[in-house]
């Protein structure tokens, strides 16, 4: 066996040869650059019409411009971002504040479990997006209606994951707590809740993803402001650049949410 194949096999995952961190960073950079350059070239060479796509260079200009220019959708970028954030955070925070405690209690107190779980199982399979028409009928197209739909989409994963987290608590830990004289309720908040935290965070992570993705749908179906509305207007005015900018901003904010969540999770769950 020659030296080369040997190092190949020695790699921890049996995957390709191990290279330095520098090589990987350069490859990442090269990948992104290649993507952008191909994208730009497709448009410059006219292979793809600029009606369908916008050049990356144009997007940079538009991004700067959009901070002060409300055309064509009637709002500057910051106004749109704020509109979307306000709706999604309202719905999301409500969902976490109500959903997590409810899920935790459902997992621990059997009566609550038997009472609430059936209702959940009935409502759960209906995607939140399909609630939009009824919600509009009830509450119009304002903040309240959209926040309700966001709430709905984020609430379910919060409840389900907190519930499962408590249900998965190690039985030995519970027995240790009980035999050391902790009451049922004490065991709940001293043992079950801490051990469910990882699952709770997974639930919140799913909730954030759901909320953000449902928001886009809600803003496209019924809104007069926000990032979803912005890309919908881009579609109406056939402005591909507005659409792509909107998509990128939506993606960036979603990624930012995720980053914050990982940070909080790592600080709350120190024992991992």
């Amino acid at each position: 066996m020659d030296k080369k194949t040997k190092t190949k096999k020695r790699d921890k995952l049996g995957r390709g040869q191990n290279a330095s961190a520098y090589t990987y960073a350069m490859l990442s950079f090269a990948g992104v650059m290649a993507f952008l350059i191909i994208w730009q070239l497709l448009l410059v060479a006219g292979i793809v019409s600029d009606r369908y796509l916008a050049k990356p260079t144009e997007l940079v200009v538009l991004f700067v411009q959009k901070f002060s220019d409300p055309a064509p959708d009637g709002a500057t970028l910051l106004v749109s971002i704020w509109a979307s954030l306000r709706v999604s955070l309202t719905g999301l925070i409500l969902a976490i504040v109500i959903g997590v405690p409810l899920g935790l209690c459902m997992g621990w107190f059997k009566a609550l479990d038997r009472l609430v779980t059936p209702i959940f199982e009935i409502i759960r399979p209906i995607p939140p997006v399909s609630w939009i028409p009824l919600t509009i009928l009830w509450m119009g197209i304002g903040l309240r209606a959209k926040a309700f739909i966001i709430f709905f989409s984020a609430f379910i994963p919060c409840v389900i994951n907190s519930y499962t987290g408590v249900k998965l608590t190690n039985k030995t830990l519970i027995n240790v707590a009980r035999t050391s004289g902790a009451s049922y309720v004490e065991t709940f908040y001293k043992v079950a809740i801490p051990s469910a935290l990882t699952m709770v965070f997974t639930g919140i992570r799913v909730a954030v993803g759901n909320a953000w993705s449902t928001l886009v749908a809600a803003e496209m179906l019924a809104a007069s402001a926000g990032l979803g509305y912005m890309i919908l207007m881009g579609r109406m005015f056939a402005r591909a650049d507005i659409i792509i900018l909107g998509m990128l901003v939506i993606g960036a904010i979603g990624a930012f949410f995720n980053g914050i969540l990982s940070f909080v999770e790592n600080h709350v769950i120190k024992w991992r």
Partner: peptide
């Protein structure tokens, strides 16, 4: 490294946001 980074940039865009484009 080469493809994953680009994928990670595109991934957070919700599928519904692709509809207009």
């Amino acid at each position: 490294s080469f493809f994953g980074t680009v994928f990670n940039f595109i991934r957070p865009i919700p599928p519904l946001a692709w509809i207009p484009l």
